[in-house]
Design a protein around this nucleic acid. Structure first.
Lengths: 205, 205
DNA sequence: GTCTATATACGGATAGAC
DNA sequence: GTCTATCCGTATATAGAC
């Protein structure tokens, strides 16, 4: 699931750390809790990973890789239309986040807290702007098929409508008095509405 | 700005705590840093507020009140149409968050971390569902003027499209290589697009 | 009310036996 | 590699003088 590490204990630590860090955050996480979660001794953590910070960085970079890796390839698929990409992206991302509901808040937090540390290690300037998806949108706009709009606005709209509900899930559930089944249904609707709302808007030239 | 507290020192503490907690989070914040920021001694913090936790709770509840108080009245305005409410809400919220960019992440974090503590203190079940705005949407749908859609979906769409960009601001700025002026322009566009996208969708029966 | 000094607790990290 | 015991820095909290 997480890594191709050789050792079984190391693997257990990574998975435990993944859970604890995502739930409690970098500052809130406790080495003791990670050890307990992994079913091992506290000092083992220091044996495998030098200290809390280096363990955290490992987990964080894995999380980022998940976050990006599940998404970027889809935007560079040369065999789908931009409409299909929007549809695929939204559906796929929703499925992904259903399995990792804590990931967005975890990643956003850390980037806000230590932006330099993050941006120094990861070159993301050109990761989006030159995707097939962005080119398709620009071309379609130039042909007058869709509104003229900065592709980044389209992308942020997709992201916002799917990611934010996961971030605000506890509030939404409470405000709307949702059961788990209500919530599932709500997110199914959300996926459909988000697709419709964006494609609908773009195509109304 | 923050509270109607009598004492000047108390006021300085509250404002300092507000900044530090929002920036560093509950676990990451340091009493020393709050004291420095307030220009006072560390032990003063304990004199005015018993301990870190009670100080935090005070700040958090104020933040929540800001968050809600700036929004709910607008949805209960009996003199505006639902279209105007959508427009007002989005514009106002954007202005508000421009001044308090750290608020959403701060609030979401805390609610995710200690949901019970929060929900026990604040009754929010009925805060939205019976607003004038929701009634207007339901009525319009019944008259066949707009699509039939759960009002909560409309609300979450509004919120998502404006709040999420603030949460993801560092990433967006980096990915799109935005200057500050670019960012401002981007958010102006976002406000306009968000309004259009929602009203456009609803009215296309 | 405000300060200095200090107690106390906690959590990360290390030493060293096995 | 894994454990127990322990160290030590840091952060919260309190005591007590002024």
């Amino acid at each position: 699931m997480l890594d191709n590490s050789s050792n079984k204990t190391e693997q257990q630590i990574l998975e435990a750390a993944y859970r604890v860090f995502q739930k409690k955050g970098r500052a809130g996480a406790r080495m003791q809790e990670i050890a307990d979660e992994a079913g091992i001794n506290k000092s083992m953590l220091h044996y495998y990973f030098r200290n809390k910070d280096s363990l955290f960085r490992k987990i964080f970079m894995q999380s980022i890789a998940e976050f990006l890796g599940s998404v970027i390839p889809m935007l560079n698929n040369v065999e789908t239309t931009w409409q299909e990409k929007i549809s695929d992206f939204i559906a796929h991302y929703n499925t992904f986040l259903t399995k990792r509901p804590d990931l967005p808040l975890f990643v956003m937090n850390e980037i806000n807290q230590h932006p330099d540390e993050f941006f120094n290690q990861l070159q993301i300037e050109n990761i989006l702007m030159h995707t097939v998806f962005f080119n398709q949108l620009s071309a379609a706009a130039e042909r007058g098929e869709i509104r003229t709009i900065h592709p980044i606005q389209v992308f942020v709209t997709m992201l916002s409508n799917i990611v934010f509900p996961f971030i605000a899930a506890p509030i939404i559930k409470k405000v709307a008095a949702f059961t788990d089944s209500n919530w599932e249904h709500f997110m199914e609707d959300r996926v459909r509405i988000t697709k419709e709302i964006i494609i609908n808007y773009l195509e109304k030239v």
